[in-house]
């Protein structure tokens, strides 16, 4: 009898809570993966009945997962394309719900030893399209510029190509790396290197000031400059869900957009949306 009662208690203590656990899967942007992990950790600390699984892979991968039904939330560092929306509409009868969760100033890094402190968008475009190949052309030493960037499944790659390169192709000598952290590490080791990525990863190397054109003043990627639009390479970071979120999913998203979630945004190094 005692064994039966004990077994029943074990069932109530172990099995029932496990069954009542709710899991939210999050997939997408590598730029946002650390931010999403911090959100998940903080939220799970306060909500023991919720499990949040976070993986990266790139914005495109996350959007595909949303369409395929293998993730609940897609993190994306770029807006969804019309063709992706069409697939979502066809499968779920919804164009998807777009939630702006944070802002990011896309930082351009050089090695700490580099004398270059600022670039214009035109100069940056020239460097990444191969028209400018030597640091001396932009006020640096006579040395070949070594380019580091992201892989083409990354939202950062697409954003940079669309907004800085204005659609032109990256020069083939650019070394594609699997994450912004890898770009930062590479630039930190290479005195002639240049790379781009999220502000959250910009520790240990120098972030360049950017200017819209040669005649404009240069601005660093600070909250004020990004919100005012003075810093010319900024973007929103998005959460996408298939339909209007309800239940646990809604509670989590509300938390992300609330004071606690936006505090995490600042802690990680991005910029809160309000």
């Amino acid at each position: 009898m005692k064994k039966t009662i004990l077994a029943a208690m074990m069932f109530l203590l172990v099995i029932v809570p496990a069954l009542s656990e709710e899991t939210i899967t999050v997939k997408g942007s590598d730029t946002m993966v650390i931010l999403a992990q911090r959100w998940a950790e903080k939220y799970m600390q306060a909500h023991k009945d919720v499990v949040i699984q976070v993986t990266g892979g790139g914005s495109g991968t996350g959007i595909s997962a949303l369409i395929n039904g293998t993730t609940d939330i897609c993190n994306a560092s770029r807006p969804m394309k019309p063709s992706e929306r069409d697939k979502l509409k066809a499968r779920y009868g919804s164009r998807g719900v777009e939630i702006k969760a944070a802002m990011d100033g896309l930082s351009v890094y050089v090695n700490e030893s580099s004398p270059v402190t600022e670039l214009s968008l035109q100069q940056l475009k020239g460097i990444y399209t191969g028209k400018i190949t030597n640091w001396s052309e932009v006020g640096g030493p006579n040395a070949r510029i070594i380019l580091y960037g992201r892989e083409n499944n990354s939202g950062t790659y697409v954003y940079f190509k669309d907004n800085v390169l204005e659609g032109e192709d990256y020069v083939s000598s650019m070394q594609s790396l699997p994450g912004t952290a890898a770009v930062v590490n590479a630039v930190a080791r290479d005195k002639n290197g240049i790379g781009y990525g999220g502000a959250a990863y910009g520790k240990g190397i120098r972030e360049l000031k950017m200017k819209k054109d040669a005649a404009s003043p240069a601005y660093p990627p600070t909250l004020e400059n990004i919100r005012s639009g003075d810093y010319p390479v900024s973007r929103f970071l998005y959460l996408y869900v298939r339909n209007r979120p309800t239940g646990t999913l809604k509670e989590y998203i509300d938390w992300v957009l609330g004071d606690d979630g936006q505090k995490v945004v600042t802690e990680v190094g991005y910029f809160p949306i309000r």
Binding site: K89, G93, S94
Partner: peptide
């Protein structure tokens, strides 16, 4: 014409 709707408790509708 295609109208995409959100039906509460059910999901998307077209």
């Amino acid at each position: 014409a295609q109208l995409y709707l959100d039906v509460p408790a059910l999901g998307g509708a077209v």
